[in-house]
Design a protein around this nucleic acid. Structure first.
Lengths: 351, 351
DNA sequence: CTGAAAGCGCTTACAG
DNA sequence: CTGAAAGCGCTTACAG
């Protein structure tokens, strides 16, 4: 990086005050007379002065950086890109920046965290992709390192490992069931993943609660062997045939829902008409479906803002459940909830 | 961040040497006797010492950080997530980290860059999403700030604004045309975007060259009004009807290709059989298509590694064009190129 | 090869 | 309210 840096010395000389008065004018305005402050600010403006980050942070004993791990083997997703945008903006609003790092020891490894902590390179962490039994929350909490998780930290023995924000998948799926019921469906199935993740269980439980609310059968469910359209199609087939075939399917993800739609067509049925299908994620796949795929959108911006507010202590809550938003499209044109009510209100928009 | 930091003082005391000898053992091993070095390293190991980043960087007059801007209004994409993973890994291999920031003044604004430069918060930048007439490369180059762009910097008056890496979309589309020709197609259309971007022109030019290579008509092309399936379907319709209808369509993106497939079905034709369709991006949409969508995959890891190598001066090239990879699927089962040859070799894999 | 000195550019108590 | 002093934890020439 070339160019002579403008330092606090230059500003002090220009304003005709000492260096610490410049520092005070910038960091503790109340300890400086208004006229002095104006003088300093003018000099700062003229010279385009910005405090050297390293010097400031070294003196202030902070890093000005929040660490965020991108495990290299995670499936890339547009949603995580969106979340990262929002996180970056939220962290910036706090005068800090996001520092990215990888996990050489796997998605839940702590080595990368340990390095950054030892080097005092970050002030805290934001976690994502937490899984049941994830060692990271406990590990960080044990060292007194500030962090917040996007996604539950899955308490052990009823004890939370640390603060988290999550999207209420159960409420969304429950509302989806109510919406499908309002549409006239009475046999509503759930299609999850074979791998038992917390997110999947959460969504399935919401579907189950919705069916129970309305006296609908709760024995219609299946599990895709993978998060793929092919696996979704295979798993959906048995749910769509026979005398007690489902007329609606709540799928655990968009890509599984796309598979369900494929199975619907293969069975000679019309998607959205004979069989309603909903997904989860509201990604670009929703546009790949004729008439659009009804899906659940996660509020990335709200999640990011809440995470940062908790990290800085502005938000004292240890656990925050945010409602998702149902985006209603042709594959399952659930009405906005003027026509029905659910125990937990989840916004629905038509598109 | 709690806990007393282990400093170079502790290590020096433990090893029975002075602080600068510890520093030398770590940063300039050759200036220290082997036995001393071993002693120091043992103390470092025992104490779990890591140099304080801020102190090190302040003394060394560097930031240890590479800035990367995430414009908040950019359409989120799984590919950018993948690229960021790879960039993070590549930067880490160099002992640095990625710092994220936003662009309050729009996708090509320079305010965010200016702040970070003034604060000496980064050592350089990686640019993406450059557009024709993008002010950023010239602005950075004018200040002598190190940067590399992923995506051409679109020279003005023949002068490059700075180093870049890009994926050769023209070569990929040209190869696609040759592959479709090998499949028996003689009327191959191109479907681009109405908005004239460099990437779109690049791909269209490759299609044109391929058709010219093989003596095929070059008047079959259209432009979608947006990067959406609906726009793709509308724009594809006229290409698929009439006596001189196309039997294959090279689409500028996956989502446009999905629209083309919709138009193919709407015209009563069978995708992949009557009409071949290819996309570009190789995102999750490829799995939304029955039999899969043939697409072009960008080598995110190679791009990231090259960008970082240029940034650090390890790679002296100012402009690097990397081949994409064609992933052949049911929508256009182009053969691996043992059966045909193209002017520029682009790998094809079946999937 | 090793250590005493100076300095990186700030902030934070602490006198005046 | 303002400024002289000390210090944040390192690295970098420079003597010994």
């Amino acid at each position: 990086m070339p160019g002579q840096q403008v330092t606090i010395r230059h500003v002090a000389a220009r304003a005709g005050v000492s260096r610490q008065t410049v520092s005070n004018a910038l960091n503790a305005p109340h300890r400086v007379e208004e006229s002095t402050r104006a003088l300093v600010l003018a000099a700062v403006e003229e010279l385009g002065y910005r405090p050297n980050r390293n010097a400031r942070n070294l003196a202030a004993q902070q890093a000005g950086l929040i660490g965020y791990c991108l495990p290299t083997d995670r499936t890339p997703s547009a949603f995580m890109d969106r979340f990262l945008h929002q996180l970056t903006a939220a962290v910036e609003a706090d005068g800090k920046h996001v520092l990215l790092f990888t996990a050489p020891d796997g998605p839940t490894g702590t080595a990368g965290y340990a390095e950054l902590i030892a080097a005092r390179a970050v002030d805290g962490f934001v976690l994502t992709d937490t899984v049941d039994g994830d060692p990271r929350p406990r590990w960080l909490a044990g060292r007194g390192v500030p962090f917040v998780s996007f996604g539950r930290t899955w308490p052990r023995d009823g004890v939370e490992a640390g603060p988290w924000v999550d999207v209420d998948g159960a409420a969304a799926c429950r509302t989806l069931v109510h919406g499908l019921h309002a549409l006239g469906h009475r046999r509503i199935a759930f299609l999850g993943w074979r791998d038992v993740t917390g997110a999947m269980l959460d969504r399935r439980q919401g579907w189950h609660a919705g069916c129970a609310d309305l006296g609908l059968p709760t024995n219609l469910f299946g599990h895709a062997l993978a998060d793929s359209a092919d696996a979704g199609a295979s798993a959906a087939e048995p749910l769509l045939t026979g005398g007690d075939a489902a007329t609606a399917v709540v799928a655990v993800s968009d890509v599984v829902a796309v598979g369900v739609l494929r199975a619907v067509r293969a069975a000679g049925l019309r998607p959205g008409v004979d069989v309603a299908v909903t997904g989860f994620d509201d990604g670009e796949l929703t546009s790949a479906v004729d008439g659009g795929l009804t899906s659940v959108r996660q509020p990335a911006g709200e999640v990011a803002a809440t995470v940062v507010a908790q990290l800085t202590g502005r938000d004292p809550r240890a656990a925050v459940l945010l409602p998702g938003r149902i985006v209603s499209r042709g594959s399952a044109p659930v009405p906005v909830p003027t026509e029905f009510s659910t125990p937990i209100p989840v916004p629905i928009e038509e598109q």
